[in-house]
């Protein structure tokens, strides 16, 4: 009887001590906000395009932190999915809808002759990258455009094009060399012949 009593008391005491400890810790080491959301938000491309089904990148980041799929960001492409998988330590899954792996970066361009100055695109732009006033021609500030596509839909005269960003001498870059040896035989035949001749 005594032993049982002692055991119970001891357990209760322990529970009390640990409870206090945990309570103290939760107050003392409380983390303001959700740092994970910030990290996720940092990886997302911030196009604010809403293609994930959330109104902007941050809401999606919050959704991811609460367990939503990481493959809903077409502008970020597979690399974003992989970065998220890395961060969250989950399996990298293919992009939803199986779209192109690395999306071509685009910017909106307003065919200015056709613009009627309705300001609808201005209201749609999540980053205020469109300039113009009612009945005045609008234009896109290219450097601010995230290529989110959101202005294309509202345009009543369809005068907005999404144009791929052109490579200039300054932005041109070398590709990754083709990993010759990892190609399978059929792919390599041509190159091999050249190599053999050398």
């Amino acid at each position: 009887m005594d032993i049982i009593l002692i055991a119970v008391i001891a357990l209760l005491g322990l529970a009390l001590v640990f409870g206090l400890l945990l309570g103290f810790a939760s107050v003392r080491f409380r983390v303001e906000g959700n740092p994970l959301v910030d990290q996720i938000d940092g990886i997302l491309p911030q196009t604010q395009c809403g293609q994930c089904g959330y109104p902007g990148c941050r809401p999606y980041a919050e959704a991811i932190s609460e367990g939503d799929a990481i493959n809903k960001c077409p502008p970020g492409g597979q690399s974003t999915v992989e970065a998220l998988a890395d961060l969250l330590d989950v399996e990298a899954i293919p992009l939803e809808g199986g779209v192109e792996e690395e999306p071509v970066k685009k910017v909106a361009y307003i065919r200015e002759d056709e613009c009627i100055g309705c300001t609808k695109c201005i209201q749609a732009c999540p980053v205020d990258a469109i300039l113009g006033a009612a009945k005045q021609m609008h234009t896109v500030i290219e450097s601010e455009c995230t290529g989110c596509d959101l202005c294309v839909e509202p345009c009543p005269v369809d005068c907005i094009d999404m144009l791929p960003i052109e490579t200039t001498l300054n932005t041109w870059k070398w590709d990754m060399p083709k990993p010759g040896v990892d190609l399978i035989v059929t792919d390599l035949r041509g190159e091999l012949k050249q190599g053999d001749a050398a």
């Binding site: 997302l44 911030q46 205020d128 990258a129 995230t146 870059k173 070398w174 990754m176 060399p177």
Partner: peptide, 24 residues
Amino acid sequence: RFAKAEIRNEEAEQRKADHARQRF
């Protein structure tokens, strides 16, 4: 060269993303 360009590109994109976030 590829890696450097990619890193520069990523950094530029990160800057742009941060900028976009700020604007948003």
